[in-house]
């Protein structure tokens, strides 16, 4: 089809490389404190937080850039930003 002649970009993981290497601060989650509310999942601008009600959260560090929005928005301060080891 004609549409295929146009340089269309298509969804694929890692289109910007492993952007987790840009990180200087790393979000560390205390799952004992986590109340399973999903607010960090909602606000993560990179969509690297996985959340399923009842299973709490996990962070994909391959792409997390360490912006710290999750730690700032967490209502129970269950996420701490720790300096990345070099």
């Amino acid at each position: 089809m004609g549409l295929e002649l146009i340089p269309i970009s298509r969804p694929a993981p890692g289109s910007g490389g492993l952007t987790g290497t840009w990180r200087t601060l790393k979000p560390l989650v205390d799952l004992a404190k986590c109340i399973d509310c999903g607010i960090c999942w909602l606000y993560c601008p990179e969509a690297v937080i996985d959340w399923e009600k009842g299973k709490k959260i996990s962070i994909d560090y391959a792409y997390c850039k360490g912006c710290g929005i999750c730690a700032h928005e967490c209502p129970v301060k269950a996420i701490e930003m720790a300096p990345e080891e070099t």
Binding site: I6, P7, I8, S9, R10, P11, A12, P13, G14, S15, G16, G17
Partner: peptide, 16 residues
């Protein structure tokens, strides 16, 4: 933000 073509980090096909 979308990354490098022909891949894209956005969940739909796109044109620049």
């Amino acid at each position: 933000v979308q990354g490098l073509g022909p891949k894209s980090g956005i969940g739909m096909p796109l044109l620049n």
